[in-house]
């Protein structure tokens, strides 16, 4: 680590890797069993509805089922493209 590194702004790549893995592995575990099997279809249909109004990228739609203390939370997030804002 030299002087320049002290001014680095972007998050460390290891952090990015961890976050990406956390999301994709959770999705794949849900698919394998335990998780609801309607998620892929629901994701597709939601995407179609959203696209009637805003042209979002498929990757911008995230659906996660989280389990905490015996409760299941369906988490749904859509990142709108730059132009739509």
């Amino acid at each position: 680590m030299g002087l320049l590194a002290l001014f680095r702004r972007s998050p460390p790549s290891a952090h990015v890797a961890k976050e990406r893995l956390r999301i994709i592995i959770q999705q794949e575990r849900d698919k394998r069993g335990g998780g609801p099997d309607y998620i892929p279809l629901m994701r597709r249909e939601l995407l179609e509805v959203i696209r009637k109004y805003v042209n979002v990228d498929p990757a911008a739609v995230q659906i996660n089922v989280e389990r905490e203390d015996g409760q299941e939370i369906l988490e749904f997030s859509v990142a709108l493209p730059e132009k739509a804002r």
Partner: peptide, 17 residues
Amino acid sequence: RVAVGEMMSVGDVKEIL
């Protein structure tokens, strides 16, 4: 590389898996 954030740590991988 872990120390400078270029590589996931043991703790990271342990937590994910």
